[in-house]
Design a protein around this nucleic acid. Structure first.
Lengths: 134, 134
DNA sequence: ATAGTAATGATAATAGTAATCATTATCATA
DNA sequence: TATGATAATGATTACTATTATCATTACTAT
């Protein structure tokens, strides 16, 4: 089964590759409508699923209730601020750790989804300010 | 605000601590009904949220569409088989990695959610068998 | 034992994602 | 370039996990 290169498909992939944020299906829908006004939300979902299965994009199941998508398929992890929701890229724990897991678990590894949670520098600053004011 | 020790709350925590699987809200609901037949699914959800905020359990946002809960709050990660869905515990990448992230990102780290995806030994064996047969 | 309040059960509401289906667009081949 | 097979689409509905609501009940400090 070959994958046809349709307008929606191409635009979704382009958008995910160029934007460094990690948009949700709905965010992509709103952006795509500017260039493709008649596009349906269903098309967004279907293409995201297909592109993910083809390994062209990554799906992030963060704790926000809706899925995020990432056009950067290089090995990396994410850090999310629990205050403002900002998501940034970070380096992954490295190949040595993967090797250890493979040895210990007996699994054959395919990928990883790593999310570290914390407070971003800005929120951290704001919180400290508030504490001092008490 | 103090947390009252109710039957449902105690049973949920006990169940999560003793079972090494990572049940969903609905699975917990079905198990709890055996001991507490009049319990409501809403109670399960409310208590899971509370226990998570108190740091007594962990919420896992895996890619399955529904949340899993983990009574083991020690620092560890998870490995999931994409064939059969089995979830096992693995060791985390270690403190050195955390330290690196903290330095690089400027974030103040709170926790991490790490999921590695692969094929479990059994599914791996089965797949290899199928290939040989072709 | 009681008063104050958090927790509960039952249910409805919400929201994100998936399924359906008739129509349209893509692309290998002629 | 025209054509035919079929994958993809838009519009809509269905599904499912989770959250909100509200009257009633259970817990606990006193």
């Amino acid at each position: 089964m070959r994958m046809k290169i349709t307008k929606a498909r191409r635009l979704i992939l382009e958008e995910l590759r160029k934007c460094r944020s990690h948009p949700t299906a709905d965010e992509l829908f709103r952006r795509l409508r500017l260039q493709l006004p008649r596009v349906s939300l269903a098309t967004i979902y279907r293409n995201l699923e297909l592109l993910e299965r083809r390994g062209l994009i990554r799906r992030l199941d963060l704790g926000s209730g809706r899925r995020h998508y990432d056009g950067n398929i290089a090995d990396h992890a994410h850090i999310r601020c629990i205050e403002c929701g900002a998501v940034a890229d970070i380096c992954s724990p490295g190949r040595r750790w993967w090797h250890e897991i493979q040895q210990e678990s007996g699994y054959s590894l395919i990928g990883s989804q790593i999310e570290v949670i914390g407070l971003c520098p800005r929120c951290l600053k704001r919180k400290k300010g508030n504490e001092r004011r008490r």
